[in-house]
Simulated assay, not measured.
Amino acid sequence: MKLIDAHLHLDKYKNKEVDSILTGSDWLEAVVAVSFDLKSCKRNLQLSSKYQKVKPAFGFHPEQGLPSEVDFSSLIDWMTLHRAEMIAVGEVGLPYYLRQEQRVSRAQYGQYIELLETFMKLAKEWNKPIVLHAVYDDAPIVCDLLEKHSVEKAHFHWFKGDDKTIARMIENGYFISVTPEIVYKEKIQKIAQIYPLAQMMVETDGPWPFEGPFSGKITQPAMIKESISMLAKIKKLTETEASERVLENTKEFYSI
């Protein structure tokens, strides 16, 4: 079984942990190392030069305060300079959880949308996939923006949303990835039932911690094996069939 962790914050791990993840797993073909900010982008680029398995994506995670104009300009300039070395634009999106905590005003939300549109335009211009943090009622807004800017290669990581949005995403050919939550959360299992396997990947979003059988454990790409096992049951396939299809999806989507 060969697999790719389609969404991992590799730069958040300690050096020894990174080395263990990437050199201790023959079955792990690659990791898509998404970035949080400019510092994170630079770290992921360094890791990709050291480890062949690391496929970096550059962007600005929306669940944080808005960047200054100078900082955002610096990020875009750096991404432009290193666009040939990145596999995708990401992680980018909208701040759903900050809004739930009432830490984002309506005016600020509009600014997050403007940032996201900038990233979408770059993804389109550079012919790169875009990795999205867009859940619940943010997802339809992001779908509107993708359609507006004619961005077709979109990956909604750890997606959560309603059936109407799911149908729209499927119709548009957007991809999703499931985390180890699929092992123990019914709502994720339901999404996996609905979504075509041909448009699915697996991820950990590590080092984000998980519950259920993973409670108290450091999140590692090995957990995606459990996700594949559950996905195979849902899709009524063998684990080998499920893993092969998901691997091919990820390789094709990210041109790995």
Rank of each mutant, 00 (worst) to 15 (best):
F175I: 00
P213L: 13
M169K: 12
I182T: 05
Q193D: 02
V178C: 15
V178T: 15
I191V: 14
M169A: 14
G212N: 07
Y195S: 02
V183N: 03
V151R: 09
I191F: 06
L197V: 10
R168I: 07
A222D: 12
M223Y: 13
I166C: 14
M200A: 11
V151K: 11
W208M: 12
K160Q: 13
Q220H: 15
Q193T: 05
F210C: 06
F214V: 08
V178W: 13
Y184N: 07
T165M: 03
E211R: 14
E171D: 15
K190Q: 10
Q199Y: 11
H157M: 02
G206V: 07
P209F: 00
V178D: 13
D162W: 02
D163S: 15
E152K: 15
G173E: 00
K217G: 02
T219C: 10
E181N: 13
V202K: 03
F156H: 08
K185C: 02
D163F: 15
K185H: 06
I170Q: 07
I166F: 13
P213A: 12
I176N: 04
S227R: 01
P207Y: 05
E152M: 13
A167P: 12
I188H: 14
K187Y: 06
K187H: 10
K185D: 06
Y174E: 10
I191N: 09
K225E: 06
W208N: 07
K164Y: 04
A192N: 07
A192Q: 09
K185G: 01
E226L: 03
M200F: 01
E226Y: 10
K190P: 00
P207C: 08
V202W: 00
S177Q: 05
I182Y: 01
F159D: 10
